[in-house]
Design a binder for these strands. Structure first.
Lengths: 118, 118, 118, 118
DNA sequence: GTGGTCTAGACCACG
DNA sequence: GTGGTCTAGACCACA
C-alpha cells in the first residue's frame, strides 16, 4: 500500500481497515490479523500499526483481548453508523468543495455522472 | 478560519486562496494583500503564510514583484485549468472514496442529490 | 468476574482469594478448589491461575501438597495479619490519595460517611 | 518521581498532572511546560511523556496548539468534575475494599480517624 | 505467539 | 523551540 505523505500513516491505515469492515472484507465479530502481521502487510513499524489499532479500539470499531488478538466489533449498528458516517463525510467534503469553487447543481451532477461512467 | 489539524495549514491556506481566485473573489492580474496582512487575516504565523505564497508562486498561480507586492496571474487559461484541476481532484477523490466503501452508481447519485437539495 | 485491564489479572485474583480467606468464605486449614477449577471459575488461563496460586504460596497464605491439593494456611495469626495488612494498605492509599488532591480531614470524613450510608 | 512498576508510567504521570491541576499547582488556562521539559522532569522518555499528554488531551484536561505548547483547560467545570471524579473513585475503592474484607461502618471510621490524626 | 509499554533517536510541520 | 510521527528494538504480562 502506498501512503499519502501529507497524512499520518496511522490514519490512512485506520481508514483502510474501516473500509474493509464496511465492505465486509473483515467480518463483524471475527478476529483480525495480529498487529505483527498487519505491520508487515502494510510495511510499517509495529508501533505505527499499534497506534492505528489503539485508535480503532477507542472508536469502538475493534476490541482487543490481551494475549489473544483483536476482533471486529460484533455490533452491526456500529458498522452501519461507520459506513454512513464515512459516506456523509465524503459527500459533504465534495459538495462543499465544488460549491466553494463556484459549481452549480447541474454542473456537479454532470461531472459526477461522467466520472461514474468510466 | 478554522484549520483541520490533520493537514498542514499552509496547504489549507493555498486552497482557500485558489478558491478565491477561481470564484473571482480575487481578480486576475490584481494585487493581493501583503503577506503580513494575509497572515493576520488567517491568524497564522508569518512563516506559514510565506510558505503558502511561495508554493502558490511555484504553481504560477500568483507572482511576486519585489518591493511592490504579489499579483494573481493574469493568464485566464491558468485560472481555468486551476478550476477544472481542482474539480477533477474533488470528483475523483469522492467517487473513488464512495466506491471504496462499497457504494454503487445509483446510491452515489441519490446521496449527492439529497445533499444538493439542502 | 470482571478484571481491571490496568492491573495484572493474577494480582486481582490473589486479592479476591485473600478476601475470601479473611472473610471466612475460605476456611483456615481447608482445601481449596483445584487450580483447574479455579481457572474455570475465574475464566482465566490456567497459567494465570497457577501464577496467582504460586504467589499466594510464596506469601504463605496457602500451601500445596503435591497430588492432594492446596490448603488455606491454618495459622490464624497469618490470617489476622493479612487482614490488617490489607486494611492498612487501603486506608493509607485512600488517605494519601485524598490529601494528594487537596481534601482536608473534615471533607474526607464527610465523604466517607456519605458513602457508608448508601 | 518514583513509579509503581505495576502500573504504566504514562498513567501515573497523567495522575500526577491531574493532581497538580485540581490542587491549583497548574492554573486553569495557563501553559504547561513543554513535553521535552516534562519528560526530563519525570525522567521518562519523550514518547512516554507525549503519550501521557495525548491521553490528557483526549480527556479534555489539557489542549494543545502545535508549535506553541499545551494549556490546562480553562473550563472550571471540567476541573471540578475531575476533582470529584477522582475523589469518588478513591472513596468507592476504599469503602468497597474495606467492606470486601469484612469491616463494618464503625471500624472503617475508626481506622480513618486514626490515620488522619497522624 | 499476542498485545502493551518503554527507550532511543530521527525527521517533519509549524511558530 | 514546540509538538507530531515514525522507526528500531527491548522487555513484560498473558494465553
Amino acid at each position: 500500500m502506498k501512503f499519502n505523505p501529507t497524512l499520518p500513516i496511522y490514519l490512512q491505515i485506520m481508514d483502510s481497515i474501516k473500509k474493509e469492515i464496511v465492505t465486509g472484507v473483515l467480518v463483524a465479530g471475527e478476529r483480525i490479523e495480529s498487529v505483527r502481521n498487519l505491520a508487515e502487510k502494510y510495511s510499517v513499524n509495529l508501533n505505527t500499526m499499534q497506534r492505528a489499532c489503539a485508535e480503532l479500539e477507542r472508536e469502538q470499531v475493534i476490541h482487543t483481548q490481551r494475549g489473544i488478538g483483536s476482533f471486529v466489533t460484533e455490533n452491526q449498528e456500529t458498522i452501519s453508523a461507520l459506513k454512513s458516517e464515512m459516506s456523509q463525510a465524503l459527500v459533504n467534503d465534495f459538495v462543499q468543495g465544488m460549491q466553494g469553487i463556484g459549481y452549480q447543481q447541474e454542473e456537479i451532477l454532470k461531472l459526477i455522472k461522467k466520472a461514474l461512467e468510466k
